[in-house]
Computed example of a mutant assay.
Amino acid sequence: MITLNVAYTEPVNCSDPCIPTLTREQIWKGLELKARCPQDFIPSFDNSRVIEERDDGSYILREAHVASDLRESPMAGKWIREECRLYRPIMSHFTLPDGSIIQNALSEGPGQDLYLTFTYQWKLFDIEPKTKEAEMARDDHMKLAVSSVQGTIRALRKLAEEHRL
């Protein structure tokens, strides 16, 4: 068993004047939507449902359905129950049943630029440390982190264009 720790950060806005700038408020609203409807942000999910919501919306228990055609995932076609805690206005924290943790953080850098960082602590019970499988898992999960951040930024832009943020 290994715990695989990966993280990826990307600036949310760019210098291209043709691409509208997203505000901190828009990004946070999008992260709140992502906690409730992850399938709008994560292509591997095709459905979700909120089971419980409390503490003024800062605690969400949800189930997300992994797409059946996602052959590379052992979870394909299954529902995953996740606890989500929202720490307004900077972070969402997801805990999976196996103890894996995912965090989505909105941070500020030089010049008040906004950055989105996703961190993962994956519990991989069927992989041994320092093996070829562990190395491949790290590479695969890093690709997942990159695509998740980039996909979330694309989804945020689309929602902003549709005036849903």
Rank of each mutant, 00 (worst) to 15 (best):
S92A: 11
Q26E: 13
F118P: 00
I51V: 15
I19E: 09
L114K: 01
H93K: 07
P17V: 09
S15K: 12
I80C: 15
R36E: 04
P89H: 13
Q121P: 07
E83H: 11
P17F: 02
E82I: 12
I60F: 00
Y87E: 11
M91W: 00
R71G: 07
L106H: 01
I19W: 07
E108V: 14
N5T: 13
G57Y: 00
G111Y: 02
G30I: 13
W28Y: 03
G30P: 09
I27F: 03
M75H: 10
R81C: 04
D55Q: 08
A67N: 13
V12Q: 03
I60Q: 00
R49C: 10
W79N: 05
S48N: 02
L70F: 15
G109F: 04
Y59L: 11
T21I: 11
A35N: 02
R71T: 14
I51M: 11
N104R: 01
E72K: 14
R49S: 10
V6N: 07
G109C: 05
P20D: 08
S58Y: 02
I80P: 09
L116G: 04
W79C: 04
L61F: 01
G77L: 09
E32Q: 13
R49G: 09
Q103I: 09
V50C: 07
R24D: 12
T119E: 10
E83F: 02
V6R: 10
F45L: 13
R81K: 11
D56N: 14
Y59S: 04
G99L: 06
A7P: 02
K34L: 09
L70T: 11
R49V: 13
K29R: 14
M91H: 03
M75T: 05
G30Q: 10
K34I: 03
E63F: 08
S92W: 00
P20G: 07
D69V: 01
R62E: 02
A67T: 12
Q26R: 06
V66T: 14
I42M: 11
E53W: 02
R71F: 09
Q103M: 10
D16P: 00
P20S: 09
W28R: 01
R36F: 01
L33E: 13
F41I: 04
P89V: 12
L31Q: 04
M91V: 04
R49D: 10
D69T: 08
Q121D: 15
D69W: 08
I42P: 00
T9S: 12
E10P: 00
P43H: 03
P11V: 07
K34M: 06
I42H: 04
R36P: 01
E25T: 15
L106A: 05
G109P: 04
T117C: 04
L106S: 02
V66G: 11
S92K: 03
L31N: 00
